[in-house]
Amino acid sequence: MRPLRVLAATGAVALGLGLAAAAPSSAAGTSDVSVLHGVPGLTVDVYANGDKLLTDFKPGTLTDPVKLPEGTYDLAVFPAGEGPDGTPAIKADDVAVPSGANITVVAHLSADGTPVLTPFVNDTSRIKPGETRLTVRHTAAAPAVDVRAGGTPVFEGLENPKEAKADIPAAKVSADVVLAGTDTVAIGPADLDLKEGTNTIVYAWGSAEDDNLDLAVQTISGLHSAPGGVPSGTGGLLEDGLPMPLVAVTVVALAGAAFAGRRAVLATRRG
């Protein structure tokens, strides 16, 4: 599940879990695709296969997930109002969208500041009860960083355009981003409510040189699972069978019947 990188010029990219057997007419499945804009200072229109997908898409905004039919897409990003016939600011041709994946396509700066498109496959596997999933993605024109929660490094040495993730107990954390191996804060701190059963994806974006580094957050909820059981009694006080007094009554009644029966038989013989 490593992210694949698409350079600004051209290039074919297989999105996600390998090349989909791209029979174009079979619209069998779909994938949930979101787009994040992480290139500072550039409002854009986004085209897919020549159709306008997004208008006036501003830096630091994220689309709602859209169900894209399985297939191959040409993605192009133009400065707002300039498409689709000129030269795109960023483009990626022959992007294969498989079936059943959850993908975020990020328009961002590479480590050296070139605008690129990077598709990431989001981990939507089930999360254990009580836990949350934290994913961090380095999509900023900046050197390697450490991501800290409450001052303690959680992910270290993360480079553009890589991601790191972990399932941890659900909690509210104060997160910041520092230059790798240092205490020099590059972004934050920001308060994150890491909810149970949710994948919180944090993007570092912008440019260190232009002093506009920032965080963007995407959440994917509904990944929770139920507790394993409900252990709710250790006493054994609950009577499941016949209560003792009733057992006694039954025993006494049977004994009485036996006694009376013997007397009755004896009386019969005598009689």
Partner: peptide
Amino acid sequence: SASSARPAVPQVTARPATPADG
């Protein structure tokens, strides 16, 4: 998408991705 072999694309809405205070 008449003759195009590529799937048609729906329109999408976007929202700020700033960290929410929750």
